[in-house]
């Protein structure tokens, strides 16, 4: 077992373990903090996949941005000091349906992934990807990049507008 393998299992366990806590925890705050470790584990997996730039991005945006937003959302929409911090349960019927559905999807995906012969060319070892990503974004994916920037602008304005107190 080399170090890479150990690292992979560590990050995979981190991700899946805390991911399970996220969806199974009754306490929303616990779920939110578990999400942090899940994201961190995913970032570790990125590093193992030679995506250094994306790993940093994952940490900065998911952990620094989205997760903070979610925690704010939790705090703004839940009376933390009260009992309501716990996420309510759904009915047993729906719960059974959810478990069945999730399991069938998971089994289907695992079946597909493990039985498919993926095309795997000789992998080119990549050094730092930041420069390459920057160049590609501003050349081949310029239109998508601009569209994304407009989307973000619209999202900011829209979010500000929607969240504003109505008079």
């Amino acid at each position: 077992m080399d170090l890479i393998t150990i690292a992979f299992y560590f990050f995979a366990a981190l991700t899946l373990g805390f991911g399970a806590v996220v969806v199974l925890s009754k306490n929303i705050m616990h779920a939110a903090f578990s999400l942090l470790f899940t994201f961190f584990g995913v970032a570790g997996l990125y590093v193992l996949l030679h995506a250094d730039f994306l790993a940093i991005t994952q940490i900065m945006i998911y952990i620094g941005g989205i997760l903070v937003l979610i925690i704010f959302g939790v705090m703004l929409t839940t009376r933390i000091t009260g009992v309501d911090v716990k996420s309510g349960k759904v009915g047993i019927f729906q719960l059974t349906g959810a478990i069945v559905l999730t399991l069938s999807i998971a089994l289907l995906l695992l079946f597909v992934y493990t039985n498919t012969h993926w095309y795997q060319p000789e992998s080119i070892p990549m050094e730092s990807t930041a420069e390459l990503i920057g160049t590609t974004l501003l050349t081949r994916y310029l239109l998508a990049f601009e569209a994304a920037s407009i989307l973000l602008l619209v999202a900011i304005v829209g979010a500000a507008f929607i969240a504003r107190k109505k008079h």
Binding site: A12, T15, L16, G19, A20, V22, V23, I28, A31, A32, T38, V42, L45, I70, G73, V74, T77, T78, S87, G88, K89, V90, Q94, L95, G97, A98, I99, L101, T102, L103, I105, A106, L109, L110, Y113
Partner: peptide
């Protein structure tokens, strides 16, 4: 790993009441 994570996410979406969840 991704398949299991996907299934976990799906379970979260379907089974929880709280919108943040």
């Amino acid at each position: 790993v991704s398949a299991i994570l996907f299934a976990l996410g799906l379970y979260g979406i379907v089974s929880r009441k709280h919108a943040v969840m």
